[in-house]
C-alpha cells in the first residue's frame, strides 16, 4: 500500500463460460485506487461494473491478470483469506439493502462485529455510533419491514461502516430510492468518506451518484474507456 494505494489492478481479464463458448466480461483492466477515494465505475448494463466490484470485494477471482486489494494479492486469495479480508476490511452496500428482516436495526448493524468477535460493550458503542452517523439512533429497536427504503439503505450503510473498513463497495446503492433519499444517502457516504477516510468505490449508472463522485472510471464492453478525476 505504497503512497496510500489500497487497490492495484493489473491487466485483469474475467471470462465466463456461456454455452460452448466464453463471454469476456472484463478485458485487460488496469487501475489503481488510493486510500480515501470517492470513485465510481460507471457504464451501461453489461459493461462489467458489478464483475469488477465482485473481484475487488474478493467475491470472485480473475481469469487472467492480477489484483492486489489491501495488500492481499489475488494469487494467494484462498476462500479463507478472502473471507477474512471481507470480514475485517471491506464493507458492502447493495441495491436491495439486504437487511435481515427478523433482526432489529441494532442487531443488523451489530452482525459484522459479532463475526469479528468484538466484546459486547465495545460492540454496543460502535453500533450506536454508526447509527448516529446515519441519523437512525431513534430506530434501533425497529425491524427492517418497519423502515422506509431510505432508512433501510441508511441501516445498510451503518452495517457496512460499523467496523470502520478501509474499503466500501457500493453496487447501485440508490437504484431503489427517490431523488431526496438518494441525495441524503450520498451525502451521508460523502461525510463518512471525509471523516473516516474510508475509500468508496461505486458501481453505478445513476447520474445522481455520478454527480457526487470525485473520480469517474467509464467501462464499456469490459474495457476502461476513460478514467478522470473531477474537481469539486
Amino acid at each position: 500500500m505504497k503512497n496510500g494505494r489500497i487497490i492495484t489492478i493489473d491487466n485483469l481479464v474475467k471470462s465466463f463460460p456461456i454455452g460452448g463458448g466464453e463471454f469476456t466480461a472484463l478485458n485487460g483492466i488496469s487501475l489503481q485506487f488510493d486510500k480515501g477515494e470517492f470513485s465510481g465505475i460507471v457504464g451501461p448494463s453489461g459493461s462489467g461494473k458489478t464483475t469488477l466490484l465482485n473481484i475487488l470485494g474478493s467475491l470472485d477471482t480473475p481469469t487472467k491478470g492480477q489484483t492486489n486489494v489491501l495488500g492481499t494479492a489475488s494469487t494467494r486469495m484462498s476462500p479463507k483469506v478472502a473471507a477474512t479480508l471481507r470480514k475485517k476490511h471491506i464493507g458492502f452496500i447493495f441495491q436491495t439493502y439486504n437487511l435481515m428482516p427478523v433482526y432489529t436495526v441494532f442487531e443488523n448493524v451489530e452482525f459484522p462485529l459479532l463475526l469479528l468477535k468484538i466484546p459486547s460493550a465495545e460492540r454496543k458503542k460502535a453500533v450506536l455510533e454508526a447509527l448516529e452517523w446515519v441519523g437512525l439512533s431513534d430506530k434501533i429497536k425497529s425491524k427492517p419491514p418497519q423502515l422506509s427504503g431510505g432508512e433501510s439503505q441508511r441501516v445498510a450503510i451503518a452495517r457496512a461502516m460499523v467496523k470502520k473498513p478501509d474499503l466500501v463497495l457500493a453496487d447501485e446503492p440508490t437504484a431503489n430510492l427517490d431523488a431526496e433519499n438518494s441525495h441524503h444517502i450520498l451525502k451521508t457516504m460523502e461525510k463518512l468518506n471525509y471523516e473516516l477516510r474510508t475509500t468508496f468505490v461505486f458501481a453505478t449508472h445513476d447520474d445522481k451518484v455520478i454527480g457526487y463522485l470525485r473520480r469517474i472510471i467509464s467501462l464499456e464492453d469490459g474495457k476502461v474507456v476513460s478514467d478522470a478525476y473531477v474537481k469539486k
Binding site: G57, L59, A83, R86, K87, I90, F92
Partner: peptide, 8 residues
C-alpha cells in the same frame, strides 16, 4: 449476504 459480510 453472510458471505459478503465476511463469514466463511
Amino acid at each position: 449476504l453472510r458471505i459478503a459480510i465476511g463469514e466463511e
